[in-house]
């Protein structure tokens, strides 16, 4: 396993796109959270209700875990894009064939790509952890771990984005086309989820059924839906009163989709002509 990763490292360590996207991601995380931090501070400082809100800062401990995870979630397309580029490159260069010809099994090839998706998710989560921790301290509050589960949700979302990128790459093979399909899918799922959410609110209003927000059961939205911005005490907006075990249901869906992506990528790679 370590040997597979060592070889993968030989492939990517001198790749410019890898360095550039990694740096973009790290800068992006810090910058995004800093902007949210500053904007929020100004709103709280200048709004008439500022006094009432003064107790609410999204980057105080405990909120910082949730806020940072939520805000950083939007940048997860960067590692996903990197994964698409790295895998579709192998198809373009036909090195996916050469690796097998030279003696890797097909399983080793696809496993190391999935491992890469896992490692990118772990590293992204570590960056989120450090950012959340730093902003928490910056807010002048003392360390607390409530809401830390959101960092776990972030990890799940990151892993879903990355593994979905592996799947799209293996299915589509061409770099530009795969990136296009990835974004179009995310967009399409978002539109569909809005429609489903709207419908589920209607069902609830009619007292027909209360299913939470149905859009959250879609493959990529399941892990998205677990991450929300901390509730502002003045804002009464929530997605409706949800069933108590809603989080667990969505979490189970997210994990199930993740396993499906893993299974599908492997099954595809193991049986096709390369």
């Amino acid at each position: 396993m370590l040997n597979l990763l060592r070889i993968e490292w030989l492939k990517i360590k001198n790749y410019t796109a890898f360095k550039v996207l990694s740096i973009f991601f790290v800068i992006g995380v810090v910058l995004t959270n800093y902007i949210v931090y500053e904007v929020n501070k100004n709103i709280v400082g200048n709004s008439p209700g500022g006094l009432m809100l003064s107790s609410f800062n999204p980057y105080n401990f405990d909120n910082t875990w949730q806020s940072t995870s939520y805000a950083t979630g939007f940048l997860l397309i960067l590692p996903a894009m990197l994964i698409i580029i790295l895998i579709t490159n192998e198809y373009t260069f036909r090195t996916n064939r050469q690796n097998i010809i030279d003696g890797w099994s097909r399983n080793e090839f696809i496993t190391v790509k999935l491992l890469l998706a896992l490692i990118f998710a772990v590293v992204s989560t570590m960056i989120v952890f450090l950012t959340a921790f730093s902003f928490g301290l910056l807010s002048g509050t003392s360390l607390a771990w409530n809401g830390f589960s959101h960092v776990g949700f972030f990890f799940l979302k990151s892993l879903s984005y990355n593994v979905f990128a592996v799947l799209v790459s293996v299915l589509v093979k061409k770099t530009g086309f795969a990136i296009g399909v990835y974004f179009i899918y995310l967009g399409a799922e978002n539109i569909l989820s809005q429609i489903l959410d709207f419908w589920s609110i209607k069902l609830k209003a009619d007292h027909t059924a209360d299913l939470g927000s149905l859009g959250d059961y879609l493959p990529m939205n399941a892990s998205d839906g677990l991450l929300t911005f901390p509730d502002n005490p003045l804002k009464s907006f929530t997605k409706g009163v949800l069933p108590t075990d809603y989080t667990y249901i969505v979490l189970s869906f997210a994990i199930a989709y993740l396993l499906l992506f893993v299974w599908w990528s492997r099954a595809k790679y193991l049986k096709v002509d390369l």
Partner: peptide
């Protein structure tokens, strides 16, 4: 396959 040296169809290498 590890014990066989193979050139199949095209030279396949990482371009960068």
């Amino acid at each position: 396959r590890k014990k066989i040296g193979t050139l199949l169809e095209t030279p396949n290498f990482y371009h960068y």
